[in-house]
Structures are given as C-alpha cells and as structure tokens.
C-alpha cells in the first residue's frame, strides 16, 4: 500500500455542486443491463420468438391461419407485452434488488438526490422498450405490408408501448421502493401486470366490456393497436383508447417521482 500526500488528497475533493447524478446512475444501470447477460439474452430470446412467428406466418402457407394484418397485429401485441413486462421486471428489481444485494446503503451515502437515483434506474429499465421495438421492426417489414400500414403499425405500437412501458416501469419502481425483498417486488409487480393483462384475453362486450377496455390501460392499448392495424381506423378515431395509457403513465410516474424523494434504506420504516 502506498501513502498519499496531502496535496493529492486535496485534488480528490469533488466539486461542491455535483449535478447529473441521474445520468451517472442511468449509465451504470445501462451498463449492467446491456453488457451483462440479462438484456442481450432477453432480446435474443425475443427475436427468436418473432422469427418463429414470422416464419410460420409468412413462409408456411398451410399453417398460416391469420391474414397479414392479424399477423402484424399479433407481432405488435407480443412486442408490446414483452417490452412492457421486461421493463416492469427490470424496474421492480431496481431498489429492492439493491437492498437485497446490500449495495443500497453505499448508494444512499452519496450526495446524489434520491429522485435522481430513481430516475436513473427508471431510464435504464425502460431502455429495453425501444430495443425490443427496434428488433420487431424488421419482422413487420418482412411481412411486406403496404408502406402506409407498416408505418401505422410501427407508430401505433411505439406510442402505445411507450405509454404502457412508462406506466408499468413506474409501477415497478413504486413496488420496489416499498419492498425489502426482491422476490416480493417482482411477484407483486408481475401480479399487477397479469391482472391488467388478463382482460385482453376475455371476450369483452356490452357497456361493461367497453368500460373495462377504456379504463384498463393494457386493454385500451391493445385495442388501440387492433383498431389501427386490423380495422384500419385512423389515429383520430382510435385516439380515445390512448387516454387510459396516457393517464396511467402520468399518474404512475408522478407517484413514483413523489415517493422516490423519500427513498429509505429499508422499506416503510426508518431502519
């Protein structure tokens, strides 16, 4: 071990007003996600799934029981579902995961504002969505739709997916802030997602069905895609279905922003 002169030590004194901690945290989290196995493995698995679907839909005419619009809709729905689910699980791991790995205290001991820590982690978690979306684009293109429908499908998928990713990643952060156990955080977040996803698989009809479709951000986003891609509705006509995803994104991110200011070493109590 070498000794350190006083002047060297003085040089180490950081600036009095550090800024941009959220960028530092986001950069580190992005490094963890994309330069470790987690992110690339998920993207690889997702691209393999889309390859299989596209192959079945476009190449094997005998097994192709959906027309091209339905196939594109299916691919966009899967893209949206997987992108949102992965962002949710990544965000649910952020705080509770650090607590479980006992790395959170060191992070809280820095002068980085709590909200910036949460923001950095949130941005890294949602980074999975654009990557998933970009991976999906060539598959939609491969189905050789007319250029107008291709653009509409990609744009609708991107808008709905972005809103839902923001909403669910915020929910994941909120749950993670209140969880000491990573398992609890991941299970609770995934349960919320499954509960909201379930109605998309149900035959919803009548006023109650319409109510659920419009109120539940997942069914609203899914139906929005269906109307734009399959039923050829214009954005203006289907835009009312974006209200729930927009509200969900706004409310969840606002709540996450507020409670992130009170990040604690352990959830719920000053311990």
């Amino acid at each position: 071990m070498t000794s350190l002169s006083r002047s060297e030590a003085d040089l180490r004194t950081p600036p009095t007003q550090p800024s941009g901690a959220w960028m530092v945290v986001a950069g580190q989290e992005l490094h963890d996600i994309w330069l470790s196995a987690r992110g690339p493995v998920i993207v690889l698995a997702f691209s393999l799934l889309l390859s299989l679907l596209t192959y079945l839909a476009a190449a094997n005419k005998e097994l192709n029981i959906l027309d091209q619009k339905d196939t594109v809709n299916l691919i966009m729905q899967i893209t949206l579902g997987i992108g949102v689910a992965v962002a949710l699980l990544f965000s649910a791991d952020t705080i509770s995961g650090e607590r479980e790995r006992e790395t959170f205290e060191s992070l809280l001991l820095t002068p980085a504002p709590r909200r910036q820590i949460a923001l950095g982690k949130f941005l890294a978690a949602v980074s999975v969505w654009p990557v998933i979306m970009i991976v999906a684009i060539p598959y939609v293109w491969a189905l050789k739709l007319g250029s107008g429908l291709f653009a509409d499908a990609v744009a609708a998928g991107f808008v709905a997916g972005t809103l839902l990713t923001i909403a669910f990643a915020s929910i994941g952060i909120i749950v993670s802030i209140f969880s000491n156990s990573n398992r609890l955080s991941l299970a609770t977040s995934f349960f919320v997602f499954v509960v909201l996803l379930a109605p998309t698989q149900l035959p919803l009809s009548g006023w109650f069905g319409d109510f659920i479709i419009n109120v539940n951000p997942v069914t609203a986003g899914s139906t929005f895609l269906d109307r734009v891609i399959v039923k050829d509705q214009g954005w203006g006509e289907a835009s009312n279905l974006l209200i729930a995803p927009i509200l969900a994104a706004l409310i969840a991110s606002s709540v996450a922003f507020v409670i992130a200011g009170r990040l604690r070493l352990q959830a719920g109590i000053d311990r």
């Binding site: 180490r12 950081p14 600036p15 009095t16 007003q17 550090p18 800024s19 901690a21 530092v24 945290v25 580190q28 060191s106 992070l107 820095t110 002068p111 980085a112």
Partner: peptide, 9 residues
C-alpha cells in the same frame, strides 16, 4: 469510478 462520479467528479 462509479462512486467518484456520484460524488461529482
């Protein structure tokens, strides 16, 4: 490096 950055370096 990560922690030094968080302290503003």
């Amino acid at each position: 490096r990560y922690h030094a950055r968080l302290f503003g370096h």
